[in-house]
Nucleic acid binder design. Structure first.
Lengths: 235, 235
DNA sequence: CGATGCGTTGATAACTTTCAAATTTAGTGG
DNA sequence: CCACTAAATTTGAAAGTTATCAACGCATCG
């Protein structure tokens, strides 16, 4: 089930130190809710995972809620034909694993080395019984996730250029320092997120660079040079 | 963006089983959770709409929850470039309008003449305060909707043939008498739901007919002749 | 009837994928 | 730290898929 969790559990001193201060991660994208975040910090255990490590798999029991403290996590589903569709990328501050079903419908693994806060859902549910606010915040979390997925649907019916432009703008909101984006994920990951091939993503980025909309100094670093143009593509 | 709440009925077997054991209103048969359905029936007002009538528009306050009693409703969003993306089709028993935001992110209108049960969300929320079961059922509704939208994402990254095959199988579960599907929506609606053009939908249906997977006696009536083949396409 | 809207079919163009190869980057062992 | 190998990314050419533009059939309705 969660072999990694037991194996990689951090010493109590580490957890305590981190939990006492409960600092907002610098890159937090606002996908959490304050008091819920605090509850999780108090109730949860922090786990460390190496790069490319599975956190949970499809069809495993969904007994925990996860919050990224450091690093990047992706959720995905492997289709029958072997292709992989990425459900989402989760950055520090983001919560994932909340699927409202007994079993996970997606798998989750780390893209980079990562620290993740883990809370038993049953504990949260018990808390929600006593404090209505917690229940409302879980609800708000779900609502946000639903809107996020619905946005993706609008994205997936558009052209490759529109998808890539939208992706860059989304990431800019989440991880950008000024106009420079440091991407934690590979071209393959981006392609699987956008429903394109890696070649099309690469070509589209090259075209955007030729059009002076962006700069790509290294493959993992992208600088937005013309946001209005990207916004127009984003539609 | 896409509001479609629990657009799906339960599998036919469940519907049948539930109807046998519970005296539900004739057309509001158990497409959702029983007690919630009953509450809505008791609290709500039934509205009648002619074909092609708007029920609510994007950006209007989302103060009500809707349940289709008779007819078919679609939700949609008009993109900046004028294209229209359909969020979902709602058949008798389906609930829509639950968007977890102050304002609707989609519009809803009728595809056929329709009767719709309307309940004030504030009334439901008040009820949920006193009865935890109601809150849980609203929650379950959301969960189902989230899974439905995620399914849709998997659909939209596939080929035209896969999308059409999946659409037919989905509709077969929802409206089929045996293997004959009576479609309430136009080719244009189907195209906008699947993110394709009307010509591609039409050609794909013709191809499926040539391949003896389906029959199309009239444009609104489709008979499934080879479900295993469709299932293989559906992936 | 003749107009109108919907659906189908055809021809062509545009876009994306596939297959292949070149290039750059990253990782590893010496 | 360098050299070497493997992996990731980019680029090119060709094939495949879907969209666009256009024409036609068919049914409905005034």
């Amino acid at each position: 089930m969660f072999p990694q969790i037991a194996a990689r559990n951090q010493p109590a001193s580490n957890r305590t130190a981190r939990n006492v201060t409960s600092p907002a991660p610098p890159l937090a994208s606002g996908a959490d809710v304050d008091s819920l975040a605090q509850r999780i910090a108090l109730m949860g255990a922090t786990m460390s995972y190496a790069r490319d490590t599975e956190i949970f798999g499809e069809n495993e029991p969904a007994d925990y809620l996860y919050k990224v403290v450091k690093g990047t996590v992706r959720t995905y589903k492997v289709l029958k034909d072997g292709r992989r569709q990425i459900g989402g990328f989760y950055l520090p501050g983001d919560i994932f694993g909340l699927e409202f079903a007994d079993k996970h419908t997606l798998s989750a693994d780390t893209i980079t080395d990562a620290r993740v806060l883990v809370v038993k859902l049953s504990a949260l549910a018990a808390l929600a019984e006593r404090e209505a606010a917690i229940g409302r915040e879980l609800h708000a979390l779900t609502a946000r996730e639903l809107r996020r997925v619905q946005e993706r649907i609008l994205l997936l019916v558009k052209s490759a250029q529109e998808r890539v432009a939208s992706f860059l703008l989304e990431m800019a909101e989440r991880v950008a320092t000024a106009d420079a984006i440091e991407l934690p994920m590979s071209r393959q990951d981006i392609a699987e997120y956008l429903g394109l091939t890696i070649e099309t993503v690469s070509r589209t980025l090259s075209a955007l660079e030729s059009a002076a909309a962006i700069e790509v100094p290294t493959s993992r670093r992208i600088v937005l040079r013309n946001r209005p143009a990207l916004n127009r593509m984003h539609g």
